[in-house]
Design a protein around this nucleic acid. Structure first.
Lengths: 190, 190
DNA sequence: AGGAGTATATATCAGACTGATATATTAATG
DNA sequence: CATTAATATATCAGTCTGATATATACTCCT
């Protein structure tokens, strides 16, 4: 196997919190962990079918939320005992190193091919994006603190603090780098 | 198009420094930018063929390095004027947000499913890995400072400082989080 | 009443990316 | 001269992404 499928475990883990539809899973991922994990419908729906075939989850029923505005019935899936066992097994295993690809840095690495202003502008956009994400994290933290505190709510808080630390570091680096490049450019123009 | 192919531009950018073989490109990527970008042979070789067909690079010749120990002849590719134009165009364009997936955080998010020691051990492994990468970055910085300073060498230094800042932040977060979780566990055991 | 607009929901696909493996060449080693 | 190790190219199954297609049912407006 070239890679292990992690969407599988992301879905199982989410269903361990509560039964949900594919649409719900996407919503929750987008609203609570998007700063470190993303999922696509293109992966979620086929995986729900697969997990269902394997007996790790099962279709609990079809319904329509009361607070919902419209749309077709939701297919709500629940995790099975077998499914819970599978996530736990995965949680026990150490994971491989991430293979991040940071396009900004790749572009900066080739910065000698374009005028300095282009590189600086790219870093400024990165800084602004990071500031926005940090704002979102602030609102997630607010929600988290408003809810009840228990053992389960502990873990979302530590992933949150990772996000905060990361984006603060990114912003810092952007500021420093912009200043550095501007100084260098001025020096070169003489 | 679902995504844009970035391997294409990574290869073109590398060939803008100097003519190289696919094997060389992989080596350079692994040794100088692996902390923010990775490439596979599985992507490099087909892309070299494609870029060659499109006239963005051309086969400069086959040779064997003097300092090399053995192996078959290298196919050395050089970037063409058209290829240079293509990278530059790409460099001018703003890039989309990254979609990082941090498996450690996903596992921690589901931490309530396993004993606390399992989560703590995972963070400890992350911290150790980050410490090792930081060491590698230190050696890259040493090499960089040893070489001649010019406009081109400027950019690798700023990507390097991103890496340093990032991994330092990760280590900090790991230390704080481990301490926090240990304290919490002790409190719970009473 | 009916049409437009919008949120909900499931599904599929081309193309990008990964990690492993297969194949072959040549130098150095013993 | 067989073995080992480094060099080099190539291919493939499986994962992941982003876009798009299809359809349902509610709300709002005229």
């Amino acid at each position: 196997m070239a890679q292990k499928n992690r969407t599988r475990f992301a879905i199982l883990g989410m269903l361990a919190f509560q039964p949900m539809s594919g649409y719900d899973i996407k919503k929750i991922v987008d609203n609570s962990i998007a700063y470190f994990w993303k999922e696509n419908y293109g992966h979620i729906y086929p995986m729900l079918a697969e997990l269902s075939r394997e007996g790790l989850i099962k279709l609990q029923g079809r319904d329509r939320k009361k607070e919902t505005k419209g749309g077709p019935e939701r297919k709500v899936y629940a995790i099975t005992e077998q499914g819970k066992k599978a996530v736990k097994e995965w949680l026990y295993q150490p994971h491989a190193a991430e293979n991040s690809r940071i396009e900004l840095l790749l572009k900066l690495f080739f910065g000698m091919l374009v005028p300095m202003e282009i590189s600086i502008a790219a870093i400024e956009r990165e800084r602004d994006a990071a500031i926005n994400i940090l704002k979102e994290l602030k609102s997630i933290r607010k929600q988290a603190h408003a809810g009840e505190q228990n053992e389960t709510s502990l873990f979302p808080l530590i992933t949150l603090s990772y996000g905060e630390k990361h984006y603060k570091a990114v912003i810092e680096w952007c500021e420093e780098t912009i200043a550095f490049l501007k100084k260098t450019t001025k020096g070169m123009k003489k």
